[in-house]
């Protein structure tokens, strides 16, 4: 999407009043499958953590005879069912990694490339010193590394430890056959439980930092990051608008296709250059 708006994100033809204002373009960054993945992932993590806490520390004590109670049974059922949703969601995201637009692939830690390391240290420096100069449309080096190690890494760790433990309920069955090797690897069932708990708390720490950084980025760059995970659209600052020979034009840059304010709504038309390409 290539509409231009000045100041606040709104789509209209720039006018004389916009001279000197920064210019944004709307870029369709997060495609629908990415957004669905994000929210299904978020919801299942919440459900899994809540039910997981109950399973580890059951606090409801129903009275009466056990034959008409099934509290732990239902909580475990929800935990396991949600675990399948979480896993299928992860697998679908792997498919979309290849099928989606280039933002679906942004953030891969290219540790073999010196340019990636430069981007990483630049990102770290900018966040550490509050010198925010390089907004990213997709994921930058730092955020990409964080998502890969923490969000994706923890996710897979939970999937493997979780299905390993799930396999215990049916020895010799499918889940035990394919994931049972995790238990001896981690030193037995009890140790696997311990790791499963630790990883779960890793999500809590991750979510705190994740929400903070998202709010911070949105505030600093005014790039619509928060709403982008609902709408898919991020704002990218291009240049300032200036008047030249009676015509409005974008500073320092020839008028490009994205100046057509009633541009195509096809996301593939978005033309993004330089920094974002390198970082993503």
């Amino acid at each position: 999407m290539t509409e231009i708006s000045s100041g606040a994100p709104q789509s209209r033809q720039p006018g004389a009043a916009d001279v000197g204002q920064p210019l944004f373009e709307r870029v369709y960054v997060w495609e629908l499958p990415v957004r669905i993945f994000h929210w299904v992932n978020a919801a299942s993590i919440v459900v899994l953590f809540a039910t997981g806490l109950y399973i580890a520390f059951p606090y409801l004590g129903p009275s009466g005879e056990p034959y008409d109670q099934f509290v732990m049974g239902y909580v475990r059922l929800v935990h396991f069912a949600t675990a399948f949703v979480f896993t299928v969601n992860f697998l679908a995201r792997i498919y979309w990694f290849f099928a989606g637009n280039r933002f679906a692939r942004s953030g891969i830690p290219w540790i073999i490339l010196p340019s990636w390391w430069r981007s990483l240290f630049r990102d770290i420096k900018e966040y550490a010193l509050h010198r925010y100069q390089h907004p990213h449309l997709g994921h930058g080096a730092l955020s990409g590394l964080t998502y890969t190690l923490i969000a994706i890494g923890l996710g897979w760790a939970q999937i493997f430890t979780g299905f390993g433990l799930y396999g215990e309920t049916n020895p010799g069955g499918f889940w035990d056959t394919w994931f049972g090797w995790v238990l001896p690897l981690l030193g037995g069932s009890m140790q696997t439980h311990t790791w499963h708990h630790l990883f779960a708390w890793g999500f809590v720490a991750f979510i705190i930092v994740h929400v903070y950084i998202v709010l911070l980025d949105d505030t600093i760059y005014r790039n619509g990051l928060v709403s982008s995970i609902v709408s898919g659209i991020k704002l990218r600052r291009v240049r300032r608008i200036r008047a030249r020979k009676g015509r409005l034009e974008v500073e320092g840059e020839p008028v490009r296709e994205h100046h057509r304010s009633v541009g195509s709504r096809n996301a593939a038309d978005v033309h993004v250059s330089e920094d974002d390409e390198a970082a993503s």
Binding site: T194, H197, V209
Partner: peptide
């Protein structure tokens, strides 16, 4: 105890204590 202690040097800690400390540290860092 239902959960095993995690051998963090110097203290006896359950995964939950470690997790809460990690979450608090994340919040404090932010």
């Amino acid at each position: 105890s239902r959960t095993a202690d995690v051998p963090v040097p110097g203290i006896n800690s359950t995964p939950e204590k470690i997790g809460m400390v990690a979450a608090a540290a994340a919040a404090a860092g932010a």
